[in-house]
Design a protein around this nucleic acid. Sequence first.
DNA 1: ACCTGAACACCGTTCAAGT
DNA 2: ACCTGAACACCGTTCAAGT
Lengths: 178, 178
Amino acid sequence: MQVARTMVQTRGYNGLSFRELAKEVGIKSASIHYHFPTKGDLGAALAKRYTEDGLAYLEDLRTGSDDLRVWMQGYTDIFRQALVNDNRMCLCGIMSAEFDDLPLEVRTEVEAFNALNVRWLTQVLTVCRPQLSEEERQQQALAIYAAVEGAQLIARGRDDIQVYDQTIQTYRAVGLLP
Amino acid sequence: MQVARTMVQTRGYNGLSFRELAKEVGIKSASIHYHFPTKGDLGAALAKRYTEDGLAYLEDLRTGSDDLRVWMQGYTDIFRQALVNDNRMCLCGIMSAEFDDLPLEVRTEVEAFNALNVRWLTQVLTVCRPQLSEEERQQQALAIYAAVEGAQLIARGRDDIQVYDQTIQTYRAVGLLP
DNA sequence: ACCTGAACACCGTTCAAGT
DNA sequence: ACCTGAACACCGTTCAAGT
């Protein structure tokens, strides 16, 4: 699954190949089908674990500090890290782009990841923008998440980490990011 | 090329199939290779024309009105239109996600599209935010473009046009969009 | 319980052959 | 100038067969 995750993050769900994956881990492609009957099963499992890992990271981040700056820095850093690491993308970001090609079970997991991000960001906004209504907070959280994913997408298209850093910086300067 | 463009916008570059495309337009896949020797040639041609169409649209928009609101509404509307139209994505946005799989000639065209957007937005910012330096304007233009692409990406992942509208609205409220 | 080889219908690509 | 059929090595998937 480690290898498969990296493949999807660099080449997308459509770019993930059972045969290539099998070669990488030293078994035959038919053997992978024993563990994950279809590509959809593998994709869903990948997105599920990705979301679980993200949840653990974000929980640690929030409990490990009470500094808003640390929280947001930690948040934008995960997306930054993917780019630094071989110009990869967020697993669910790249899968969102392929949405129409995604089996139903994969879509569900991608949606769960989106929901996680919006939920976490909404909680952060509860602390730093208490004057807003819950609905306004959720909309801002969604906007922040969308903007960060967009920054990653464009920076990747340029293969330039500076594009990401400058865009995040601009989001901050303009007040979109707390 | 019309059919191919739609295919990429819904399923991505990797989801584009010569055989399926051939069936759709009523010839054999080998015949398409006569016009576009490789998939990269087709992809590059698609991105090139897409950029040309975008350029024409944005030029008309800017010369057809001198109202900033009309300009920005027109800008966010093209990206909105793709979603309304069968939940499609910006051709170059979806290709950015598949960047590592893209042949060099396609990458070049994707970059040209990015550059076009940043250039146009920078010009708009020259009018409405003249106090900024040229460099600041370019960075803001890039941030706006990235945020709009991100909004489209996330809205598509939810198959919900309201997510796009609300996110754009939030960008506006927060001052990211003029 | 886990793996494999062989088969199936797909894919991009090539090329000799047709009009 | 444009198209085609057949071949090549790829793909996900299935399944009978092995340990």
